[in-house]
Amino acid sequence: MNDADRERARLIDTYRKKAKHYDRASRLAPVPFYPQRAQRLRAVRALALHAGDRVVDVACGTGLNFPLIEERIGPGGRIVGVDLTDAMLARARERVDAAGWANVRLVQGDAADFAFPGGVDAIVSTYALTQVPGVGRVIAHGAAALAVGGRWVVLDLKVPDGLPGWMRQVGVAAVPTSASLAAWVARRPWEAVRDAMREELDDPRWTELCLGTAFLAVGSGRVR
């Protein structure tokens, strides 16, 4: 088993344990009163969705983004939710069934290996992509499948830069990750997201949120 396989196995085990209480716990993450829902809403707005659009939610977890997306695409649209962990997708299925959404397909699999459907209108990932091994590959595969002018949006956590040392330590402590915190910080995966979006997409934009503890990255599909 190589390092990537070990990381996948650990992520699956971690999120199987978290799945049952994930929705409740997410309201307190990364710290109590963190504006997670407001940031999710901002990410979905950045997708610039229209009725009937097809959206891929990468590392969708329990489907917390689904209501925000459904409100914009309507029953004529389509959501494909992709996640590595069966237990998280089981919770997402409960959410879909309870809401009566007939336009959601759930796929269990590694985001790095997912075969994106061609010509999708939007791709989103929130609070998850920096934990995925091969994040640059995920961005590139999604960009290749994105319709011209469609949006790829990533909302995720990061370590704040350009702050006094004591504030940076507070920011690091506030960032939860299922990986070793030291390894995650050393890897700086948010930079891989930024660099891949600049390389693969048109009009890439990067906005830091909450004193640099989070970021919103947006890019548009290009002619290929």
Rank of each mutant, 00 (worst) to 15 (best):
R45A: 08
L47Y: 11
L47S: 11
A48L: 11
A48C: 12
A48W: 02
L49P: 02
A51N: 03
G52K: 10
V56L: 06
D57C: 02
V58P: 00
V58C: 02
A59Q: 01
A59I: 04
C60A: 14
L64S: 12
N65Y: 00
P67T: 13
P67E: 06
I69N: 06
E70F: 00
R72G: 05
R72Y: 02
R72I: 02
I73G: 01
P75I: 01
R78N: 06
R78M: 11
G81F: 04
D83N: 09
L84Q: 06
T85K: 10
T85S: 12
D86V: 12
D86K: 14
M88K: 07
L89F: 13
A90G: 09
R91P: 03
A92S: 15
R93Y: 10
E94P: 09
R95C: 12
V96A: 12
D97Y: 05
A98C: 09
A99P: 07
A99Q: 10
G100R: 05
G100M: 07
W101H: 13
A102P: 00
A102V: 01
N103F: 00
V107T: 14
G109P: 05
G109I: 03
A112T: 02
D113F: 01
F114Q: 04
F116W: 08
F116P: 05
P117E: 04
G119S: 04
D121V: 00
D121G: 02
A122Y: 06
I123Y: 02
S125A: 11
T126G: 03
Y127T: 11
Y127I: 09
Y127P: 00
A128K: 02
L129N: 04
T130E: 13
V132H: 03
P133K: 05
G134C: 08
G134M: 08
R137I: 12
R137Y: 06
A140K: 14
H141M: 13
H141L: 15
H141G: 13
L146D: 00
V148G: 00
G150C: 11
G150H: 04
R151D: 05
W152M: 15
W152T: 06
V153E: 07
V153N: 10
V153G: 12
